[in-house]
């Protein structure tokens, strides 16, 4: 069993963070971040060509994370590989000792830096979850028997602030039925609203980690509201960021995150949090400390 799965099963409030593989072979900063976060967080997601920007593959970086003594979660999107490539990489991940996989459809190539690329999407997130379940049970997608099955702890993503929410929740249910055992959510900024989402999610036998993206300024909050699907920063937080002024903006953003995380834990709203620091990995331990998790 993966140590991430064990942590979730133990009932402790779990924390995951993120490693974004760089574009190019210069991995010094990335290694520094891994060293900084290991032992503090329960697992590290390794993103898969995030935002469709070409970078080092998730699989290779997951192996590096393992070698540095941390627990990786392999993020896998369906954008760049067909069913043969996906299954082959999953088998490869398994023999390398990577035991957690997060299944996603993936941002469209038009979001990234190779806009002329042919998007694959041979399968999508729900079907990928079914594939993982099949590999765990010794069968590939075509029903062929495997010589040795995988033992993945597989998860998926969900957007609690999706608008409209109903079809998103329908898909959430399908992901559970397809085998998802944990969920990491899109960034949330409204704990009360998230509690409503959890009331629905709690009907399913899955672990849920609430997503966090640290606010750096009121401008960033407005940008997220206007440009990023599924993210809604309430006006009172924007006002709080504004009132803090430029000097104290980041500090305030971290305080907000810590305050929300503390509440989620104390009120037992969800099973943990997933902090997407996006270049500010050094702030993750600080937030955890502020939230009383370190």
């Amino acid at each position: 069993m993966s140590s991430f799965q064990e942590a979730l099963n133990s009932g402790k409030f779990v924390v995951t963070a993120e490693v974004g593989p760089p574009k190019g072979t210069g991995i010094k900063t990335m290694l520094h971040d891994i060293e900084l976060l290991k032992g503090k967080v329960d697992a590290l997601n390794v993103t898969d060509n995030q935002s469709a920007v070409m970078r080092i593959c998730s699989l290779a970086v997951c192996k590096i994370v393992l070698e540095h003594g941390a627990e990786p979660i392999l993020q896998m999107t369906c954008r760049d590989r067909n069913r043969i490539g996906l299954q082959s990489d999953l088998l490869g991940a398994s023999v390398l000792g990577i035991n957690n996989v997060l299944c996603m459809t993936g941002d469209h190539v038009l979001a990234g830096d190779h806009k002329g690329a042919k998007p694959v999407y041979d399968v999508e997130s729900v079907q990928l979850l079914k594939i993982v379940d099949g590999l765990n049970n010794g069968r590939d997608m075509s029903g062929n028997e495997l010589k040795g099955s995988t033992g993945f702890f597989q998860g998926a993503v969900v957007t609690p602030e999706a608008n409209p929410l109903e079809p998103q929740m329908g898909k959430f249910a399908k992901k559970v039925a397809a085998g998802a055992r944990f969920f990491q959510t899109q960034a949330i900024y409204d704990v009360d609203k998230f509690r409503e989402f959890m009331a629905e999610a709690r009907k399913y036998p899955v672990k849920v980690l609430a997503g966090f993206v640290i606010l750096k300024s009121a401008g960033m909050a407005n940008f997220l509201n206007n440009n990023v699907p599924g993210i809604r920063v309430p006006q009172e937080l924007i006002d709080e960021m504004k009132a803090a002024g430029k000097e104290k903006a980041l500090e305030t953003g971290m305080d907000i995150a810590a305050r929300h995380i503390r509440r989620l834990k104390e009120e037992k709203i969800c099973d943990g949090v997933h902090i997407m620091a996006i270049g500010m990995e050094d702030k993750v331990p600080i937030i955890m400390e502020k939230a009383g998790l370190l």
């Binding site: 369906c78 954008r79 459809t105 993936g106 941002d107 469209h108 038009l110 998007p119 999407y121 999508e124 997130s125 729900v126 079907q127 993503v157 969900v158 957007t159 999706a162 608008n163 409209p164 079809p167 998103q168 329908g170 898909k171 399908k174 899109q186 990023v228 699907p229 599924g230």
Partner: peptide, 13 residues
């Protein structure tokens, strides 16, 4: 654009 068969992705705004 992604040809998804089982519901909306997280990119719905």
């Amino acid at each position: 654009p992604k040809g998804i068969l089982n519901g909306p992705c997280g990119g719905t705004k």
